[in-house]
């Protein structure tokens, strides 16, 4: 069982993780998804290209 100070630490790191995810990772992922979907389409992987494109559209990247 983790003790209370470990739990506190995990909670603090979870907050940092969420912030890092929202501010750093997600925007980059949305940006990267658009060219990735085009590349997948060129490779003939239409299903995957559509999936990635849908993800890019979620982030408002057109």
């Amino acid at each position: 069982m983790p003790n209370s100070s470990q739990l506190e630490e995990w909670l603090a790191l979870a907050v940092v993780g969420i912030v890092a995810w929202r501010v750093l990772v997600r925007p980059v992922a949305f940006r990267a998804a658009h060219p990735l979907s085009r590349w997948l389409l060129k490779q003939g992987r239409v299903k995957w290209a559509m999936r990635v494109r849908r993800y890019a559209l979620q982030g408002g990247v057109r």
Partner: peptide, 9 residues
Amino acid sequence: LPEGPLQSL
């Protein structure tokens, strides 16, 4: 809060 990472954050 007790001194620790959560308080510091």
